[in-house]
Design a protein around this nucleic acid. Structure first.
Lengths: 151, 151
DNA sequence: CCGGGTGGTTTCCGTTGGTAACTCACGCTA
DNA sequence: TAGCGTGAGTTACCAACGGAAACCACCCGG
């Protein structure tokens, strides 16, 4: 964006700032996983599945900085760290959980839409290759002839 | 995640898949900007502000593939491309808009939480530097002596 | 021929995310 | 005494994603 690119700053930029804070790849998952009470680090990691320690640590730090979770260290051996939603986090959980549940409820519709799109546009190649391939090849009803590899 | 790292795949992985699809940095902004009707490419770009053409194009393609928006090309001179939410997109808009409005309504609370955190932990350094610095130094009520740069 | 406006792609580079190994501090086992 | 396992976290390295800017194709006005 150029400096002279004057746009009307509706309600968009502030939203974008906060969205960038909660827009980490795993933030929604972490917050929704925390909704049933405090959780230990490895518990979270195990429950989410597919997240690395590095990113889980970083995302939790970020959530802590933004006031969404608290981090409680019990100095035992081995050390024990519990993460829990704050009031702010619990409030954020409400809309985030709605998104999460929408995603769960409409997963198949998205998958079907993807399939329909690629059947109508066989030459289309998804710009975000990795994740897209995962989605297509995963729990799809019949992912044979997934047109993503053909190009 | 290792292959032998068996976890119970609750409702977490499917959600994560869809979330990765809609979890692009700008996806929420784009969908919520589209809620009042179809929009042209540059209109979207101007309205959102801060997004590059490349990413806007890629994100819109992704949304199109997932069945959230339609892309209508009018072969006029200069060419005109309109993007509009599908039914699926309008349904997704509901929870996404809730997130967006939460972010707008609670922006200052997040900012305050950040400030309080950094006042209590002056040594803390945010792992995601760029965005965090932007957030702190931006429309904050009094961002003088923002402790992030001092380290 | 030059510049403007539109939608989009390409190039380069910084940031983010993933993988694997290592650390710390202890108790258990041999 | 040495080695192993634990739990939270860090580090090094590397691929993918996101951002800035340039370029492309198209046609019109001057």
């Amino acid at each position: 964006m150029k400096p002279g690119d004057t746009y009307t700053p509706h309600d968009c930029r502030p939203v974008g700032e906060i969205l960038n804070q909660i827009g980490g790849k795993w933030t929604v998952l972490i917050i929704t996983r925390l909704k049933h009470g405090p959780m230990r680090f490895s518990e979270l990691k195990r429950l989410i599945g597919g997240i690395s320690q590095k990113v889980l640590t970083a995302t939790l730090r970020e959530l802590e900085m933004n006031g969404f979770v608290t981090r409680t260290v019990t100095p035992s051996i081995p050390p024990r760290v519990d993460y829990e939603l704050t009031d702010l986090g619990r409030e954020l959980l409400v809309p985030l959980d709605a998104v999460s549940e929408w995603a769960l409820a409409n997963r198949q519709r998205v998958l079907d839409a993807r399939k329909a799109f690629f059947e109508q546009n066989p030459d289309a190649v998804p710009p975000r290759i990795g994740q897209v391939a995962t989605l297509i090849h995963s729990g799809n009803s019949s992912d044979s002839s997934a047109p993503v590899a053909g190009g």
